[in-house]
């Protein structure tokens, strides 16, 4: 009885360990599932874009021949490089070097904000609106919906930055930072597809 009891308690303890203290693992799993689901929204928008573009006779509105690609390309470069920058930030946090983490996270935020600003400048200079046929609608829908995600990412990074100022906040794991970073990579990948669809495929 007693030996069995001890073994049972031992197993019980390890089970609890597994189920409850692996909360970060659960969160990461859940977050990836969520991102996969989220990507289907973009997938449906992309599908819609492809169908519209291949079936509409007059794709561009009157007076529009195509999109300027130079500034968006710079924007794209900035956004894609920021993915590496946030990775470096995560490494610093992993090594418990908080100042390096803060510095690189701030750099990511600046790059993300630059992207948003570039997007805003581009929007203002465009000769068509969201009401300019299917092209106008899908263009603003895709870039706008993606822009919302970039904004969310930057805000998440801001929260992570502020939380790094709380002493000892990241001592017991930093799932929030990992999630923010994952989200940022996700936003990047989406942008690459989006850029290819809208700017490259003209």
């Amino acid at each position: 009885m007693t030996v069995e009891r001890v073994i049972a308690q031992d197993i019980e303890a390890s089970v609890r360990e597994h189920q409850e203290h692996d909360a970060a693992g659960n969160s990461k799993f859940g977050f990836i599932v969520f991102l996969l689901s989220e990507s289907v929204i973009f997938l449906s928008f992309f599908t819609g874009y492809i169908i519209y573009k291949t079936t509409t006779p007059d794709w561009y509105p009157l007076g529009v021949t195509g999109l300027e690609t130079r500034e968006p390309l710079i924007n794209t470069m900035v956004l894609i490089s920021s993915s590496f920058v946030i990775y470096v930030a995560e490494r610093y946090l992993h090594d418990r070097k908080l100042w390096g983490f803060r510095l690189f996270l701030l750099a990511t935020m600046i790059m993300g904000s630059y992207f948003l600003w570039g997007q805003a400048v581009e929007w203002r200079g465009l000769p068509f609106t969201h009401q300019s046929g299917l092209f106008g609608g899908t263009f603003y829908l895709l870039t706008g919906f993606h822009g919302l995600h970039v904004l969310t990412g930057v805000l998440l990074q801001l929260i992570m930055l502020v939380r790094s100022l709380i002493p000892g906040n990241y001592d017991n794991g930093y799932f929030g930072v990992e999630a923010t970073s994952l989200f940022w990579h996700f936003v990047d990948v989406i942008w690459i597809v989006l850029y290819t669809l809208i700017y490259v495929w003209q």
Partner: peptide, 25 residues
Amino acid sequence: QLYGLPALTGGAVMLLLDLTLGTSF
């Protein structure tokens, strides 16, 4: 739900934009 609902959400967003902002999807 995970693979299907986002597609409906996408369609609903486009419908809402058509209804309120005058897009033409």
